[in-house]
Amino acid sequence: MTADKEIVLSVRHLTKAYFAAGEKVDVLRGVNLSIAAGERVALTGESGSGKSTLLHLIAGLDRADGGEIDFSGTPITNLGEAGLATLRRDRLGLVFQQFNLIPSLSVRDNLAFQSRIAGRHDAAWLAQLAERLGLAGFLDRYPEQLSGGQQQRVAIGRALAVKPSLLLADEPTGNLDEATADEVLALTRDLVAQTGCSLLMVTHSTRLAATLDRHIRLSAGLIA
């Protein structure tokens, strides 16, 4: 991480526990993490180590038990539901293993969905995204008419169309074969670099993790 760059994300002493069969399970036991502007970070860890939980807390999709999450100077742990929804709409890009596209919308409208809601629709940028992602010839198709790799490209394009400050990706290539995963991740890296946004990507692949700027590991509820 470059010391003189702005810190986009700061996570301090974050804790989260769940109850299973009446027993408390500590998933996160005091996680600390900082990500600088433009930095691309891979997060790995064993299954069940809390990787997805951490991303969901950062995105405001779940609430931490303790600790702080600061996003570009905004302490999001203090935000209400409306504030969290605004944060996700305007400043965060979210990409999951499940593509979460809207079946009734065309590729063009899926790509533009978040940026239109945020009031930051940029037709020229959207056209560039579609071209770079290899989707320019599929804009009038619907998700069911696309391959898995193409659907994930739409999901990535939708997240980047709003030009977020931070892209959170949870196993974005988990449903893709190795060659397609490599291609999709390479495109994501390039587009993230072009927009200047930061990237935090959960992956099970140490090979893919090695292609990003920094690789961190979650183990026993802590960043190793």
Rank of each mutant, 00 (worst) to 15 (best):
A155W: 09
N110E: 03
S205H: 05
T15I: 07
I102M: 15
T195Q: 05
R120P: 00
G67F: 06
Q151T: 03
N110D: 05
R91A: 07
V11M: 07
T2S: 14
L167S: 00
L168H: 00
I117L: 15
T206G: 11
L146A: 08
G134K: 00
E6I: 11
Q151M: 15
A136C: 02
R207L: 10
S165A: 13
S198I: 02
S115Q: 01
V184P: 01
S198T: 02
L9C: 04
L135Y: 05
T53L: 13
L176I: 10
R63H: 11
L222R: 14
R29Q: 13
E68Q: 07
H121D: 07
H204V: 11
L146V: 12
M1N: 10
L135E: 00
A36N: 13
L191S: 01
G221Q: 01
V11Q: 02
I223A: 08
G93I: 08
K16M: 09
Q145Y: 07
E171Y: 11
Q151C: 13
K16Y: 12
Y142A: 07
A220T: 10
R108S: 13
L133F: 09
A20M: 15
L126E: 09
S205N: 05
M1V: 11
P103L: 13
L84E: 09
G196F: 11
F96P: 05
A209N: 07
V202K: 01
A17K: 10
E144V: 14
V154G: 03
T77G: 09
T77D: 04
L166F: 08
L200Q: 00
K24R: 15
S219C: 13
D4M: 11
S47H: 10
N175L: 04
E183I: 01
V154T: 09
A59K: 02
R91F: 10
T86K: 13
S34I: 04
H13D: 15
I76K: 00
L160T: 02
G93M: 09
L146W: 12
Y18D: 03
W125P: 05
G174W: 03
E68L: 03
I156S: 02
V11T: 06
F71Y: 06
I35A: 01
L212Y: 01
A127N: 14
V31Y: 07
Q145P: 06
L55A: 05
L135A: 02
R120W: 03
E171P: 08
I58E: 00
H13G: 11
A64S: 11
E178I: 12
E131F: 12
F96I: 12
S104A: 15
N78M: 13
D177W: 10
D90H: 10
A155S: 14
L176F: 12
E6T: 14
V11G: 01
M1I: 11
G174M: 03
T206I: 12
F138H: 14
T2F: 09
G174L: 06
S147A: 08
L54A: 06
Q145D: 04
N110G: 06
L54W: 07
Y18P: 04
